[in-house]
Nucleic acid binder design. Sequence first.
DNA 1: TGAAACATACCAACTGGTCGGTTTCGGAGT
DNA 2: ACTCCGAAACCGACCAGTTGGTATGTTTCA
Lengths: 205, 205
Amino acid sequence: MATRQAPAKEKLIGAAVKVVREKGFNATSVDDLCREAGVTKGAFFHHFPTKVDLGIAAAEAWKLHANELFGGAPFMAAEDPLDRILGYLEFRRDMLDGPIGEFTCLVGTMVQESYDTLPALREACQDSIWGHALTLVDDIEAARVRHGVTGDWTAESLALHTQGVLQGAFILAKAADDPRAARDTADHLIRYVRMLFNLAPETKE
Amino acid sequence: MATRQAPAKEKLIGAAVKVVREKGFNATSVDDLCREAGVTKGAFFHHFPTKVDLGIAAAEAWKLHANELFGGAPFMAAEDPLDRILGYLEFRRDMLDGPIGEFTCLVGTMVQESYDTLPALREACQDSIWGHALTLVDDIEAARVRHGVTGDWTAESLALHTQGVLQGAFILAKAADDPRAARDTADHLIRYVRMLFNLAPETKE
DNA sequence: TGAAACATACCAACTGGTCGGTTTCGGAGT
DNA sequence: ACTCCGAAACCGACCAGTTGGTATGTTTCA
């Protein structure tokens, strides 16, 4: 059933994810991408009509990758939806470590450069961010019911807020060339969600 | 004392602030900047050795601009430091309106593209973000004392958190090509700060 | 009058993208 | 099993436009 995917296409998408996260979309040339993927320019333009089209494909791959990574993580096995949400946020906080280019967000980077000039890429980035954020909505709703929490906010806005805070954390990490401020910001986010659900502050080990 | 500044230099900095916010640093060419500023290339390279140096100058100008704008805003006259903080955050939330290129952050945009490739620009962006964030620290400390609030967080981390959330809000606005999600995120931030200081949720009019 | 401010023509390197070609490969016919 | 075929995959030389930056001026002004 699954038609055997040509390797060059996948290698180019992988190269885009890696290099664009480091250098940004505009600063990454087609030659850079071909070199990183070990592929020629002919192969590039056989699979993608333009460089932007590779960016769009990378944004789609990024969404699939994220939903797979987090959807299959251990914390998702928790019975209480609130534990799944907090597990997700703690997982994301703990990821903020090591080389900056390895934990930051491809589509957050790309959308900064493209929102006004490359509408198709902007839309792909929105789809990627929203597509991941919305996977949290059901658990937030369920947690609200289970814990009897109301408040003047929607589950969707809280889901997007978590993504926004993480995007902001990436910027702080990039600016400082150090992930500490990013982790502090994630801690504030976790503290906020706990307070929304009337939980005591996270205990430190 | 103030040596009469040559207009070309200022015009170029102004042009950089405007165009880079729209198109990003890398996608903005020297010719773009000269055209926008109404200045020739000769003038450009007379005042700035390289394009990156203009970016750095723009980052510095941006910090001054921000601290002037917010430091002189009406909410700063409030007597209670907590009111000044909340006034600041509400002001920033209310700014999230109109064309996206007019409320987003220059240095947040630039640092995404430069953190790994242009260390001098990255540092200027950090200085700009941190330099603004730190103007909030004294009020946060004072509010903590005044309202008897402790908790497992530092004033500096909360100040940086506010900037991080705003940076994330800009990304959401750019991705959606719409500021609504950004305002929702700012509302969550305000709700968080109010909860930290044991205030009731913001009343809507 | 001398230095700083500004202008214009120019350049080598690089940009995204094209184009004519060769190689690879799954299946159809025998 | 073997050949053959057409399409898809892949190659690399090439191109016109743009890039950041330079060289050589002329103008402005204290």
